[in-house]
Write a protein that binds this DNA or RNA. Structure first.
Lengths: 338, 338
DNA sequence: AATTACGATTGAAACGGTTCAAAAGGAGAT
DNA sequence: ATCTCCTTTTGAACCGTTTCAATCGTAATT
């Protein structure tokens, strides 16, 4: 037995395919009686409209794509969840791809997603120190609906929803200074990339505003933004600098820092205050709960989806860069409070 | 300027649309010269085939759906990554939906995904204590390609790839007993659900095989499988039972346990040995690295995708239940070793 | 009874590809 | 020059919807 099509339904219901289609789309021009009749047949046959034929007619797949560095860091997992919720409100589905922080892989996925017919794309930029962005330029040229989330590529026009990374770093640093810490370091990544640049800037400004001398050597550039990166950074600089305050660029990295300090027998926060960034789910539930900066994930995601649909549906967007406020969470890993 | 279609390409190249189509599909019946000519025009125009039209013709979207409880627990994030890799090898994309451990939500997403035309579905069953599974029955009736991952619904025929949960719990428990621990508890969920049932069974059997009396009251049924669940379970039973060994059903929960013990001033592992399950990324990098059971995520995922494509492409599948071996990771949160 | 008005229904074009039987073209043999 | 045989190419049918101008039916109006 072949596939059940709208024709079968129409034949059995004794109406035209147009009528069936309109019924299914809830058009008001079909009489109630006919609707009821048609729906009965639809249910009896277990008919479902063919999504491909539909998409072809409507030229929309009602699905959008998400490109993220990966989901091992649950920060991105939380973003994925929030995006899915926002997409579902608009009856859209989400496809996802993992870039592993490589713009090359990102380009490949963009291509794949275009071939799948997604209506728009949300991209969390890869933290790639030598990015090749031709694929993004392409998308912009063809005016493809695209919004960056959480960061953007500094060399390209942005349609971005992110949080105010600098201000989080600023407030955190100020509280560390205010708590009397004298030797604070920031473990960061390649300063040409926005997320690092912003945080470094917040860090610097906190010193400036506090009237304390800023030592650029206290910004440690680590290459991996992972646990291992944090671990290795401590390995490299601890004995030399003997910091009493350590700000890691994200929570996973901070966990690496804590783990290494712990194994060196250094007490947290008595000897060293540590803070992370992102407030991932596990940060608050660690043995030593982590002082960190919470990003407003769910609002970021709903704004991003909103902006994306503005683009998809051809509306003007008012602001191309939306920066939402963050909030610092003071926990036991630091003596700083506010 | 309208959309560029295959007709435009054909016209400019001076050939028929059939030829262009065959060229793009790499058919061997088109002469090299023509191919070259056509490709030139394609590139010049920046033509891309319309995915909707293609899907309609081919009746395949080259995309599959993943239904998972959520991505806050990075165990599922790691699964998503691994699945994406496996899907990409077959040039497929992945859509995802989040069930929040509710079969009702799962049903809704199944419906949505069918409407999107996914070719098949990978479902990580929701840990829902009163599941409504009619949507799954539907899928099975219509013979829709479907495989369960990580667990299955006990009341339904399974096409499942999972790990041998019981054996992990068994080995872990045995090592706890072997280390001389006398008062071991297991914090689990609703025993009617497969993942809990299996682990409880492994737990029980370890006592049996060790000739130590098994106390069913030492299986604590917690309602949330989250951090809070672990935290609350300790709150509830610690003072009464005073366990010296605690097995949590997953790592996140174990972190909740550790956090609560820590705040009570109880030392790990000196006073209490703790173990989790899953070996999520953060488990090894905690302040006190967690003894846990690693599931072979990447193999599970590639097997699941393999099985799914067997179903999609109409091949017979040999085994409906694949159980892969796990490996216990002994770390500092327990005195147990092997 | 004829006309009008309007809501309900029809039917065919359009969406943009793929596929394949049939036609065309070209080379080699007679 | 004609015939065969093979390789290329063509063109139309098809995939299953949506949409909308045109038509139909019915009831109200004159």
């Amino acid at each position: 037995m072949g596939k059940i099509t709208i024709k079968d339904v129409a034949a059995l219901a004794g109406v035209s395919v147009g009528t069936v289609s309109m019924t299914l789309n809830g058009s008001s021009k079909v009489s109630e009686k006919t609707k009821k009749n048609v729906m009965e047949i639809v249910n009896k046959l277990g008919y479902r409209r063919d999504p491909y034929a539909r998409s072809l007619s409507l030229s929309s797949s009602r699905s959008i794509g998400l490109l993220a560095p990966g989901f091992r860091n649950s920060f991105f997992g939380e973003i994925a969840e929030a995006l899915q919720v926002a997409a579902e409100k608009r009856n859209n589905s989400l496809m996802f791809g993992i870039t592993n922080d490589s713009t090359k892989q990102e380009a490949k996925l963009v291509d794949q997603f275009l071939d799948r017919g997604v209506d728009g794309l949300i991209i969390i930029p890869a933290e790639d120190s030598s990015p090749d962005l031709s694929h993004i330029r392409n998308l912009l040229n063809m005016n493809f609906p695209l919004v960056f989330l959480s960061s953007y590529y500094s060399s390209l026009p942005m349609q971005t929803v992110m949080s105010d990374l600098a201000s989080g770093a600023y407030e955190l640093t100020k509280s560390f200074i205010g708590a009397g810490l004298k030797n604070i370091i920031l473990i960061s990544g390649e300063p040409s990339l926005i997320p690092f640049k912003e945080r470094i800037e917040g860090f610097r400004k906190a010193f400036e505003d506090s009237g304390v001398e800023y030592n650029p050597d206290h910004v440690i550039i680590s290459d991996g933004m992972s646990f291992e990166g944090g671990y290795a950074a401590i390995e490299k600089v601890y004995d030399e600098i003997k910091p009493d305050g350590i700000l890691a660029i994200n929570d996973v990295m901070a966990m690496g820092v804590i783990s290494r300090l712990h194994s060196k027998g250094i007490r947290i926060p008595e000897d060293v205050s540590v803070a992370g960034y992102d407030d991932i789910a596990t940060s608050s539930i660690q043995e030593t709960p982590l002082t960190t900066v919470a990003q407003p994930i769910s609002e970021m995601c709903s704004r991003a989806v909103e902006m994306l649909f503005d683009l998809i549906e051809g509306r003007e967007i008012e602001k191309t860069l939306v920066k939402l406020p963050v909030s610092v969470k003071y926990r036991k890993s630091s003596i700083a409070k506010e």
